[in-house]
Amino acid sequence: MNGIEHLPPWAAALTAILVLLGASVTLVGSLGLLRLGSFYERVHAPTLGTTLGTVFIASASMVCFSVLESRPVLHEILIMALGLVTTPIALTVLVGAARFRDTAERRAQVGEAEDG
């Protein structure tokens, strides 16, 4: 714990609000992973954490460090940009794989039924 006690009250409050917001949005998204029924519904869930969750927590970090070091600390923008660009790619590839597996499995079942 070195640093955050030197924050002025407004920055501390802003950081606290942003961190809590981001964490709750992320938790809601991850809860969706438990509550939603099928795989294609579940894929929607983590995007909450990667969009708003990441933006909130990275902005909190930006506010905190910029005030602490009294200069603009902007490298959290990299994490935001990375999250916004890479997650759709990963999820699209994953959904493509899931569809491929589904159709392959269905074809195998149809083949077995015809054989039997």
């Binding site: 714990m1 070195n2 640093g3 955050i4 950081t15 961190v19 981001g22 964490a23 992320t26 998204g29 991850s30 992973l33 795989f39 579940r42 894929v43 869930a45 983590p46 954490g49 990667t50 969750g53 990441t54 927590i57 990275a58 909190a60 970090s61 905190c64 460090f65 602490l68 600390v73 959290e76 994490i79 999250g83 997650t87 990963a90 999820l91 994953l94 794989a97 899931a98 597996r101």
Partner: peptide, 30 residues
């Protein structure tokens, strides 16, 4: 199914990244 596990892995890695950011704020280290 396997795709659910991969999705879980993706979620865990994103959440771990956010957790590390909060640790960073807490300790004040870059």
């Amino acid at each position: 199914r396997a795709q659910d596990r991969v999705l879980g892995f993706d979620t865990v890695s994103v959440n771990a990244m956010l957790l590390l950011l909060t640790f960073g704020i807490r300790s004040g280290e870059a």
